[in-house]
């Protein structure tokens, strides 16, 4: 079944970071120089996308406090990761405010010391034996998702002589079609490293940077347990064409 009447709000490529953003040095050799080829009319190949409701997930796939614990039978604090315990949660909605249900949200991050569990990360901060740093979940009927994790640490990286990434969590969302596919990063409200970051600076409009800030949400924190950060994701809005093109 191909719904030719469906389309999505055009992606504003001045809002998103450009391919070539020389302050982020790796973008220099990895950015196309030719113009993108515009498709005036998206086809079934762009308007459809995967539905992951049949992907079998583990019981702790969205709980990074538990999903890398060496021995699941451990009790109390034994084997838990080091760091500030947080809930990261929010809603996936489209540009018209419509919830996006049952969509795949994935995330990955460094540990509290700023080290990723990746064979290529050789930062001197140690790995945490209780922390893997990856999560996934589906949004519910109203578009809500939630993860439990620790707040990642900032870390240095080779760009300018002394560049540091602000604390951030990588977030990946599919949305209703491959046209809505989006990978971003959630930063933490008030982090003084945000305005210093060359990757944040790839974005020109300060209002676009604001869309990537997770906000401290005391109402959803748990007393004597963990803080909460709210991070809503907005994907391209879906349109219906009501009139035949004739």
């Amino acid at each position: 079944m191909q719904d030719h009447n469906k389309r999505f709000v055009e992606r504003d490529r001045n809002w998103h970071p450009p391919a070539y953003a020389p302050g982020y040095k790796t973008s220099v050799p990895r950015s196309p120089q030719q113009a993108l080829a515009s498709m005036q009319q998206a086809t079934a190949s762009e308007l459809t996308g995967p539905d992951f409701r049949h992907l079998r997930m583990g019981p702790h796939d969205n709980d990074l406090l538990l999903n890398f614990r060496e021995d699941p039978a451990l009790a109390g604090a034994a084997g838990l990761p080091v760091g500030e315990r947080i809930i990261m949660f929010g809603r996936v909605i489209d540009q018209f405010g419509k919830p996006v249900p049952h969509t795949l949200v994935e995330m990955w991050q460094a540990n509290a010391g700023g080290r990723y569990r990746h064979k290529n990360d050789r930062y001197l901060a140690p790995l945490d034996p209780g922390f893997g740093g990856v999560g996934r979940t589906l949004t519910d009927e109203q578009g809500w998702y939630r993860f439990r994790t620790i707040k990642p640490g900032p870390y240095p990286w080779p760009n300018d002589p002394n560049s540091w990434r602000p604390s951030h969590i990588h977030v990946s969302v599919m949305g209703p079609s491959i046209s809505t596919r989006l990978i971003t990063q959630m930063y933490f409200e008030g982090d003084p490293l945000i305005p210093l970051c060359p990757i944040v600076h790839t974005i020109k409009d300060p209002a676009a940077v604001e869309t990537m800030i997770g906000r401290l949400d005391m109402a959803h924190s748990r007393p004597m347990d963990c803080l909460a950060y709210r991070f809503d994701l907005v994907v391209r809005g879906e349109l219906q064409t009501f009139f035949e093109n004739q």
Partner: peptide
């Protein structure tokens, strides 16, 4: 209309 969440490198 809301603006799309901005993209960042993977």
């Amino acid at each position: 209309m809301l603006r799309e969440t901005a993209s960042q490198t993977a």
